[in-house]
Design a protein around this nucleic acid. Structure first.
Lengths: 196, 196
DNA sequence: ATAAAAAATCGACCGCGGTCATTTTCCCAT
DNA sequence: ATGGGAAAATGACCGCGGTCGATTTTTTAT
């Protein structure tokens, strides 16, 4: 896998053939398929590991004193920055993640559940603090944020949002989500201290 | 393209080779590439046409008297029902749409702009009616709904949401978006008559 | 220690997506 | 009509992802 990532980074995913990848790793071509069912699975497995690690770290060290808006922006911006490190990796990973093949469903669901389990405590705390409506299901709230994150990444891919504009855009989207799209008078303010 | 869609539907996208597709269409293999740069472009072009048509029809005939929530749910549910007609088509189309290759950027952006132009009037009217906050940019509002739609489709792909639960889920998500995730007292009610 | 069984490794092979030099078709100026 | 040149069509060909039976290595049983 190390050889794979090195080659993918150097020459690009498409331009790297399994044969030369196997040669670089000092194994036979067929052996590769003993570890990974398809080529993109090599990349996907790598990405999943990376993100799993990143998420663990982020959610564990999340500062539960700051507003939920800030927490969510931090977590998703970290993912986003990781994404933007390599556009090609990102596309394949996001495509498989958001719209997985049926073959990958089991693995995908397990990872997602894992992720939710990391986020839920943060959201629950926010509910207790009165920052989030208590009557909403945690899954729906997570979904809401995640949907907006998908949008951000999609907009970045299509060039509508530059990398440096991303944080502002995500903050704005999340704030919209918290305050609501329709006119209303919030009971608590989320714009008490701006952002940073 | 007719031959392509027929074969793709019958045998599946992956299982249909360009060669037999060309034979079915009564042309040579190389000629296919005179019309479509890649295989998935055949499917993508078809889907784009379908959706373009569907969107035109829906937004033109949108009943601007009903709440914006209902309008948005109708529009996106129509898209969703189209999506669910063929899981395989849908995956390829959504993957390319949400995370397009750089080669397809121009075409993709044009289509998206087109789509926005269809939605904007509806949202603008809703702003005038006081259903949406006037200080929000139309692009952000569109994005918000679109992001939640992406989430719905993604959840459907991963099996978290069944086809028949989709409308309820989307309605719930959109209502959340309108009312906001944080506790507050709406100036107008979006739950005046339930849904259906 | 040895044989048999099980697991891992391998690379020749297959079918397909995509390319390109060649051929065919079409159009227009003479 | 006809010659010529551009445009379109074509299928042999290439490289790659993925398969599979042959072969080697490892494990287990006696």
């Amino acid at each position: 896998m190390q050889a794979a990532i090195r080659l993918f980074s150097e020459k690009g995913f498409e331009k790297t053939s399994i044969e030369e990848l196997a040669r670089a790793a000092g194994i036979g071509k067929g052996t590769v398929y003993g570890y990974f069912p398809t080529k993109s699975d090599i990349l996907h497995a790598f990405c999943e590991d990376e993100f799993e690690c990143l998420r663990q770290e982020l959610t564990a060290n999340a500062d539960q004193e700051v507003p939920i808006l800030t927490q969510m922006v931090r977590i998703y911006m970290a993912e986003f920055m990781k994404i933007t490190e390599n556009r090609e990796f990102a596309r394949i990973f996001m495509q498989q993640t958001a719209f997985p093949r049926d073959v990958d469903l089991q693995r995908h669901l397990a990872h997602e559940d894992n992720y939710f389990a990391l986020l839920f405590p943060l959201l629950e705390k926010a509910q207790e603090r009165g920052e989030l409506r208590r009557e909403l299901e945690l899954l729906h709230i997570t979904g809401h944020f995640y949907g907006l994150y998908l949008l951000l990444v999609s907009a970045w891919f299509s060039g509508r949002i530059a990398t440096e504009e991303a944080e502002e855009a995500l903050t704005s989207l999340f704030r919209q989500a918290l305050e609501g799209l329709q006119p209303q008078k919030p009971l608590i303010s989320t714009t008490d201290n701006g952002n940073e």
